[in-house]
Amino acid sequence: MQTTDPQGSVPSDVPEPPPHADEPRKLEARLTDADRVYRAVVSSGAAATLLLITLIGVFLLIGAWPALKEAGFSFLTEKVWTPDGQPPRFGVAAMMFGTFVSAVVAMAITVPVAVCTSLFINEYAPRAVRRSLTSLVDLMAAIPSLIFAIWGLFFLVPALAPIEDWVVAQFGGWLPLAEASATGGSLFNAGLIVACMTIPITTSIIREVLAQAPRHECEGALALGGTRWGMITSVVLPFGKGGIIGGSMLGLGRALGETLAATLILSIAFEIKPRILENGGITVASGIAIEFRDAKEMGLSALMAAGLALFIVTFAINFLAAMVVSRSRSGAST
């Protein structure tokens, strides 16, 4: 601690106050030790996350380099996957297609189901049921994806078979989406099982956000003679827009990377086709899991490259989502 000398002048190592100028000055503050320690701990946590992501990216890039050099631009357009053949032919086109299709199917089911479930729990369920439903949804999020995949394989897919066959028979003739030579191991079914895995986590987040909708605004809507549904559309959903997008994106992240469902359900086929009910398809994650065992040198590098592609796509989607969420942040205009 500095002490002032008898004349009361300012000790020499304390900087002079800056001259008064008509411009914003630099703000400084002396931190306590506790503050410094706390800041160091949280900064290193954040730094560790960044470092981890960077390391994974670098590792994938190094591993993928030989394959990327070999394939060049055709890596993005090639459907076939024979990296260890002579000459090696491989590309992520079919895998990426399958990944997107199953993820789109999954999200098309997840988002409406998650929003409706959240609204039911928050606004319609009797109080006694509400709490148990909430914990049930959270519990579902904790079920290992293997359980969902097995349940899908042995129960859901066989159970849906008659319906899917009927759809194919009815609409297959003129609707390319519904054409199929055989059903069961399709991208649609894979997406359906993935949806079972993404619904709980998405619901959990959306429900949490929608529950934060300001009560006094909800009462305002009801006091005007609105129905509960009117209150939801005029207050709750506009408020929760950001959270709905954010929760959906987390679900999408899981759907893009989901391995087990696609591995177990899909009949493997490296092809691009609009017939989503038809057997056959592949996703990046399931492709890596399946091809990994038999891969030789170039095969491994090619799988790394596929992983890198998925890594970049997931990253880009999350980045986009973050931008959308920050633009439509819940209740920002309050």
Binding site: E219, L222, P238
Partner: peptide
């Protein structure tokens, strides 16, 4: 509730709606 309106202690307009839409909100709701 339409015939017996209420003004609350804390002003509670719908913040995301425009002024005009706020006034007309009750019409939409009912």
């Amino acid at each position: 509730r339409r015939r017996i309106g209420m003004v609350f202690q804390k002003p509670n307009p719908f913040p995301a709606m425009t002024i005009a839409d706020n006034v007309a909100a009750g019409l939409k709701l009912t």
